[in-house]
């Protein structure tokens, strides 16, 4: 039992990085960015290739971050400069990345077993592997949350948040909305790719199919976080994403323990997200909003 929670915690922390990336596009920019399905694998692929060719794992992880940012830039340019709808821009980059990821890895999957990775340093300090992951995951997530909290409080960050909210107003204030969207996509996909690199090193392999459905997992985590841990202010929102990602992993660990076949997981996640997204409608249906009607008005 403790082992299950520990495992969910470690995995949840790594997926939290990816979740924060999804949050930036989905909630802040109001764009459903499918690039993430490709950029999470790109991160894993770059890290795996770097490590197997003897590069320092930290440097490899950093390059993975940069690779994801480049993917975000690509989607951003397709969307803003070539005026391709955001959803389609993301799909195009995602499909393109499939081939790029195969090129980077040279084959469909790479094993990282018994190779030095970013967690090795912590294991050498005497931590068992899961705790090593939790330690590095927690440090990374805390750093990212603090960094983003600062960034989205700056003039530039405020302009990006406003762009997702009301682009007309933002342009009237002299801000180039295209640049803001591109910056948002770059940061988002950089984080997703970084998450992918850390996940691959945690599971000791990188696989071409590991990104499939990741957008839905990200969305599920965002929504669970919002529903369970509130969204009062921006700092709370960011931390709620982390708890959302961890909660999602705990839920998954439990349904697997209860006997669900792991092949059914994606269907389970998709249904969960569909229900979560339709919650406001379901609420109104089950419990219609009461409208105060005066005595006289009822007859009219």
């Amino acid at each position: 039992m403790v082992e299950v929670i520990k495992g969910a915690l470690s995995l949840g922390l790594l997926w939290a990085i990816m979740t924060i990336g999804v949050y930036i596009t989905y909630r802040i920019l109001s764009i459903a960015d499918l690039t993430v399905e490709g950029s999470i694998t790109l991160g894993a692929a770059i890290a795996a290739h770097a490590i197997t060719s003897g590069m320092n794992p930290y440097l490899g992880t950093l390059i993975a971050l940069l690779g994801g940012m480049a993917a975000g830039l690509c989607t951003g340019l397709l969307h803003t400069k070539l005026k391709i709808p955001a959803l389609l821009s993301g799909i195009l980059t995602m499909i393109g990345l499939y081939s790029i990821n195969l090129r980077v890895m040279g084959k469909a999957n790479i094993s990282l077993l018994r190779m030095e990775n970013v967690y090795t340093v912590f294991e050498n300090m005497g931590l068992e592997p899961t705790w090593a992951t939790i330690t590095l995951g927690a440090i990374s997530v805390a750093a990212i949350v603090c960094l983003l909290y600062w960034f989205f409080g700056t003039e530039l960050g405020c302009a990006i948040r406003a762009t997702g909210n009301n682009p007309y107003m933002v342009r009237a204030q002299g801000i180039n909305t295209n640049t803001m969207i591109i910056i948002g996509l770059v940061i988002s996909n950089g984080l997703v790719s970084l998450g992918g690199a850390l996940i691959a090193q945690n599971q000791n392999f990188s696989d071409i199919g590991m990104g499939t459905g990741s957008i839905v997992i990200g969305l599920a985590s965002v929504i669970i976080g919002e529903v369970l841990f509130g969204k009062r202010n921006f700092f709370m929102r960011l931390t709620s994403l982390v708890f959302g990602a961890i909660t999602y992993r705990i839920i998954i660990a439990f349904v697997l323990k209860l006997g669900m076949h792991s092949n059914d997981l994606k269907l389970f996640t998709a249904i969960t997200v569909a229900i979560a997204l339709s919650l406001p409608m379901i609420k109104d249906f089950v419990n219609p909003p009461k409208i105060a009607i005066g005595e006289g008005e009822q007859d009219a």
Binding site: T154, E155, A159, A162, Q173, G174
Partner: peptide, 14 residues
């Protein structure tokens, strides 16, 4: 946001 209309947006606090 309006006070900074027409000025470059940097990394100073918003």
């Amino acid at each position: 946001l309006a006070l900074r209309r027409g000025k470059p947006r940097g990394l100073r606090w918003g």
